[in-house]
């Protein structure tokens, strides 16, 4: 039992972080406002979770210019995809196993 629990990724303990990764798994990219609308969280809250995921190199950040405005675009990295999949597998085993 202890083994399986350790497979759960600590980075995904937060609902917001898990949500960000879930959205980026099925979309090639997403911008800040899309993530905000989908997850229904505040700017500051979302920004801090994004930078945490960025530090882990689970997502990549790209700034684009739309006219004069900047639009920041996020995408999942390969490491992020793998971490997310492993986490889901662990969750599934937990539900099935007990």
């Amino acid at each position: 039992m202890k083994d399986i629990l350790s497979d759960l990724n600590k980075a995904f303990e937060s609902r917001v972080r898990l949500g960000i990764m879930a959205i980026l798994m099925v979309n090639d990219f997403a911008d800040f406002n899309t993530l905000k609308d989908m997850l229904e969280v505040s700017d500051g809250n979302l920004a801090s979770h994004i930078s945490a995921l960025e530090k882990l190199e689970y997502l990549s950040v790209e700034k684009k210019f739309v006219g004069k405005k900047t639009n920041t675009i996020y995408a999942a990295t390969d490491a992020g995809r793998k971490a997310f999949k492993d986490h889901l597998d662990a969750l599934e085993r937990l539900i099935r196993g007990s």
Binding site: G19, A22, V26, T34, M38, L91
Partner: peptide, 21 residues
């Protein structure tokens, strides 16, 4: 209870992936 939590988490993820794509 833990198990229910995990189930809820999985269905939330599923919903989010569906809704965003």
């Amino acid at each position: 209870e833990k198990q229910l939590d995990h189930l809820k988490e999985l269905s939330e993820i599923r919903n989010l992936m569906e809704r965003s794509s």
